[in-house]
Amino acid sequence: MDTQWPRWEVFKQDTPAKPHQAVGSVHAADPQHALLTARNIFARRPQAISMWVVRAEDIFSWTKEELAENPPPEAAKQTEPLAYGFQPLTFCVFRKTSHKRSMTFVDYVGEVSASSPEDALKQAQQQFGDVEALAWWIVPTDRLAKSDPGSETVESWFAPATDKTYKQQQYYATIGSHVSKHKLGRETDDEE
């Protein structure tokens, strides 16, 4: 039997002030399964208030390197003239702007209305070009599945991660001789 299932990219929002960030991926059979699995994998501990998932194959991505070598075809091919009822699509735009540290992500920056993913990229470059992008992800908005923003769901999905103190290392901090007493120096990477 197939155990692979489609791969879904997961976007986690930590606080209202932060954007949704691409934290990794899960395999799941359907959108709700993907959201639940994402919750169990990426928000057992860290703070979160919302999660989005999208099938990896629905993401159009370009790295800076790729754009330099193969610029996308000029101006989107609009297959149907507007007069015949062409409706532009809404795309969510995600951008990565730093490779300097490990905890840097592809962040949600906003939405654009466009006739194709290539057109959406062009508009994203114009609207969100204030900082150099090392990678762009363009996702048709209707392909994203989102966790329920209602306070009850937010509470039941995300509060247990921080409420269960026995799962936090701080709970054990004062036991025994403190590790720093024996340390000769240790390098740490940026914490989440």
């Binding site: 934290v23 990794g24 057992r44 501990r45 860290p46 490990s102 905890m103 026995y166 799962k167 936090q168 290392q169 709970y171 054990y172 901090a173 036991i175 025994g176 990477d189 940026d190 914490e191 989440e192």
Partner: peptide, 18 residues
């Protein structure tokens, strides 16, 4: 990134064991 997340959780595993 996986390692940063894992280390944060392993610190709990280490301390509860100790």
């Amino acid at each position: 990134r996986a390692m940063v997340r894992i280390c944060a959780e392993e610190a709990f595993h280490h301390k509860q064991g100790k």
